[in-house]
Computed example of a mutant assay.
Amino acid sequence: MIIAVIDAMGGGIGAQIVSNLREELPTYIDIYALGTNSIATNSMMKAHANKGATGENAIVTSVKKANIVIAPMSIVMPNSMMGEVTCKMSEAVVDCEALKILLPIIPENIEIVGLENKPLALLIKDSIKVIKKEFNIK
């Protein structure tokens, strides 16, 4: 099983996700660190992702192999994350066959109603619960 974690800018969110996945899930699960830039990728690799790749083509190619994609919701919004998310990246994530777990971390000028405002740590825990349930992982 492959879990692709996508992040941008400094990679802090992605690093927290990777770290929590490593703690909670079996070691046979591969975690791909996909950064829109090398700083984001490096941060996730330091959190013990199995493989890392950077940039538009790496993301477009790697999400096709993933069973699960975890990222801030902004990944499906072209030009978000200070312009680091390209249209091709967004389209690849939306079109891939993987289960998409999108954390409600979005640009300031967008508001999604009906979402419970939770700290990042709880959002990550909720994401791991979804993975364990969906893929029958104990």
Rank of each mutant, 00 (worst) to 15 (best):
I39V: 15
V60M: 10
I137M: 09
G12R: 11
D30G: 14
S90C: 09
I2A: 04
I59L: 01
K138E: 13
A4F: 00
M89P: 09
G114W: 01
E91S: 15
M77L: 15
E97M: 00
P26K: 12
P78M: 06
K64G: 00
N67Y: 06
I106G: 06
V18W: 06
A40M: 05
G11Q: 04
S62M: 15
E23P: 04
K46W: 02
I2N: 14
I13H: 07
G55V: 05
A4Q: 06
L115H: 08
G52H: 04
S62V: 03
E134Y: 11
K65N: 13
L103D: 10
I68H: 01
P107S: 11
I131Q: 10
I110G: 03
I31W: 03
N57V: 06
I110D: 07
S19L: 06
S62P: 03
L34F: 09
I101W: 04
I59H: 01
I17P: 05
M82K: 13
N79A: 12
G52V: 02
T36W: 01
I6N: 00
I110V: 15
I128H: 09
K118A: 01
P26F: 03
S19Q: 13
N37T: 01
D126N: 15
L99W: 02
I59E: 05
T36Q: 07
I39G: 00
